[in-house]
Amino acid sequence: MTNADAQTKPLFPHRHLLGIEGLSTSDITSLLDLADTYVVQNRQVDKKGSVLRGRTQINLFFEASTRTQSSFELAGKRLGADVMNMSVSSSSIKKGETLVDTAMTLNAMHPDLIIIRHGDSGAVELLSQKVGCSVINAGDGSHEHPTQALLDALTIRRRKGTLEGMTVAICGDILHSRVARSNILLLNIMGARVRVVAPPTLLPKGIERFGVEVFHDMRRGLEGCDIVMMLRLQLERMSGSYVPSQREYFHYYGLDYEKLAFAKPDALIMHPGPMNRGVEIDSAVADDINRSVIREQVEMGVAVRMAVLDALARNLPNERPL
């Protein structure tokens, strides 16, 4: 892209990345293309760039997270930003009293980019209305987790060459999963066929109108799939409240070689992590280097987050000449 192009047509014409909803095919393609260049950069000895030099990035995590937070931190640092991590203990904001105040306080420090994770759906959008900088949603309640969907898409695209026409089975706790919602949206936008596989108690009402095929039988759901995307099931939801037991859940919905055999022979296995080995995924399957791309997802995560930070920073005021 030339300088002139970049000025007339922004790469990513949005101020924030709050979700996949509202993005176009070209928005997503631009981000994935840019992320591809960062995959290359990240594999070099000198990984450091400077497109965010002078920029301040704040990682504001109201919910504990190891991998997403470190992925965003590394992404920002590799682009030359000054990165500050703020973990707000969940107890002090349990009622959300200081949520808006926290955002206003941070805003007064003139950050350029704020990355937010919060346990409540819609919280990141609420905060984005109160600050003057770009906001990236790193997960809000059961709503969206857009960078996860983008990194999943990058992983699939690099392995399979395209997203269009791929059959993707998303399996597990769809009801509570922001990863599932963002992936369903993104995969639909990019022309993939999406299936969801879960017991009825772990599916939201009206799921059949989200643009997915619904399966309660995992074997049928995996039949002919290109991608098997497993979701994490929180252990406390497996003791009779949503499903009767861990044992029964693994029996019907855990990914093992026997069920995987129904998918295409070259089907990829994905998981957003952290995994519950032996609960939703058999340990050997998770570690199968021929099938599992779970560690690759982590690598793509850094590249995708660099692409998102870069793209949003290009729209910030006082843009440096490229």
């Binding site: 819609g122 939201p204 009206g206 989200f210």
Partner: peptide, 14 residues
């Protein structure tokens, strides 16, 4: 409780 609640990731009251 509805499709919209599902999309918004909010728990529904039937």
């Amino acid at each position: 409780e509805s499709e919209l609640a599902g999309r918004l990731g909010l728990s529904g009251i039937p």
